[in-house]
Design a protein around this nucleic acid. Structure first.
Length: 434
DNA sequence: TCTGGGGTCCTAGGACCC
DNA sequence: TCTGGGGTCCTAGGACCC
């Protein structure tokens, strides 16, 4: 903890929803909900108008629709969010070279490196207000909430206090007065599971946390978290603002609207994800040694299997081969709702391939890997696929679905009928908007 | 038809090495 | 005739964050 309030935390208010309202004036003043719009989607961001109806982040879209049926439900335009975020981060860097982005809508700024005449409360307050005004200007009207304090922890806590469009400065020396009455859940790192453990030990507030001995806390929560909370309860936090953090993993995952039972389809989807991971690693100039697959079963049980290669790779086919073989260890007969592929153990170099491809296994290129549809379907049509490839729902009724299997390459395609609950028929994943 | 996607960090056990 | 201690790497799972 410093003796000056020189760490600033900035948080853009309801960021994704605010960008949508900025870009589409008809949405202003109305509830806007950005998130997954599929059957298993969740809310990413709700505008303040939607929050009044009890809609919040991480709520299922289904529940959000029930609570706020008249809201605009949007899938998200990440390109726009990234572009807006870049402008904000540039404004922060114009103030201080020490900027640590935490996500598209959040960052720490070290005001000690900002070249201010001093770090008095009045001075940093003025700098914070100027910053909020600049953010408003460069983003075309978005608002931000700021916290300024003597540590990352306090700055982050402070930025929660006056949302939206506000600011809180914690004068040095008053940190514990602010913290003690607060619930332990304001501490970043104390989620539902930890809060419940603490609750069972009779600890609800930071004042109560402060009275617990370090050894007792470590016994309760483990070394890292126990010691960490013991310190944070005393406002002890000397973590520096760090400009660049290297990525440690790259992953792609997807949740499907209906559970998948077909192993060949699973292999095809893993293959596609592995290639995407490879593409992203090459774009980032990185490569990795450990391939991990993630499988969420129909009952939400989540499994992972990993394998570490002798040298790093960024090759999608190699990642795919390992991913498919890892899937082989798992019993998926009950169906899976999510599949994912990730790489970790990242390095910034790739081992030259001295021996060429392993002979033997062929790519399952003929696997049912539906390409994204390339024609425009009738508005509102459900795009689906089965082992024949992509199609669209032409008619539905009395438990039967009729699908036209057409692609840009093969029009007009065959028409087939399915029982509405036929497991061979899968709704197509909505195309990525990014 | 409750429960996203992309991440980070931690824990714990076993293998393996000195 | 019982049985070190530490360190590193790997794997699986879990909590948490935005």
């Amino acid at each position: 903890m410093r003796t000056t309030a020189s760490i600033l935390h900035l948080d853009l208010d309801a960021f994704f929803a605010a960008v949508e309202q900025r870009d589409k004036p008809s949405l202003r003043g109305k509830p806007v909900i950005v998130g997954g719009t599929g059957g298993r989607g969740v809310v990413s961001t709700a505008s303040y108008e939607a929050r009044k109806f009890g809609v919040g982040s991480a709520m299922s879209t289904r529940e959000a629709r029930a609570r706020c049926p008249h809201a605009a439900f949007l899938g998200g335009r990440f390109h726009a969010y990234r572009e807006t975020s870049k402008r904000v981060m540039q404004v922060l860097r114009d103030l201080s070279p020490l900027v640590e982005p935490l996500s598209l809508d959040e960052a720490f700024v070290d005001l000690a490196a900002a070249g201010l005449p001093d770090l008095d409360v009045a001075t940093v307050t003025e700098a914070g207000e100027r910053l909020r005004a600049s953010v408003h200007e460069v983003t075309g009207g978005l608002t931000a909430t700021v916290g300024i304090a003597s540590s990352k922890f306090l700055a982050k806590v402070a930025s929660e206090l006056d949302k939206p469009d506000g600011m809180t400065v914690v004068p040095p020396g008053t940190e514990l007065d602010l913290l003690r009455p607060m619930k332990v859940t304001v501490i970043p790192g104390v989620g539902p599971a930890t809060a419940e453990r603490l609750r069972r030990a009779g600890i609800h507030t930071i004042a109560e946390l402060e009275r617990v001995g370090e050894d007792e806390l470590v016994g309760l929560l483990g070394q890292a978290l126990g010691q960490g909370l013991w310190r944070l309860a005393r406002a002890q936090d000397s973590r520096p603002v760090v400009v660049e953090r290297e990525a440690k993993s790259v992953s792609v995952e997807g949740t499907y609207d209906t559970d998948i039972t077909d192993r060949r389809l699973m292999e095809g989807l893993l293959t596609r994800q592995a290639k995407e991971v490879g593409t992203r690693m090459r774009k980032n100039g990185t490569s990795g040694r450990t391939v991990t697959i993630k499988v969420r079963l129909h009952d939400f049980t989540t499994l992972s299997r990993s394998s570490t290669l002798s040298s790093p790779t960024d090759d999608g086919s190699t990642i795919a081969r390992v991913a498919r073989s890892l899937l082989g260890d798992l019993d998926t007969t009950g169906g899976v709702r999510l599949l994912g592929v990730g790489m970790s153990g990242l390095a910034d170099w790739v081992q030259e391939d001295l021996f060429g491809d392993e002979p033997g296994e062929e790519e399952p290129e003929d696997v049912v890997l539906p390409e994204p549809p390339r024609r425009s379907w009738p508005p509102g049509a459900d795009v689906v696929h089965d082992e024949m490839g992509p199609g669209w729902v032409w008619g539905a009724g009395s438990g039967v679905v009729t699908v036209r299997f057409e692609t840009a390459e093969t029009p007009p395609g065959p028409v087939r009928s399915f029982r509405a609950d036929d497991p061979a028929l899968h709704r197509f994943e909505p195309p990525a908007e990014d």
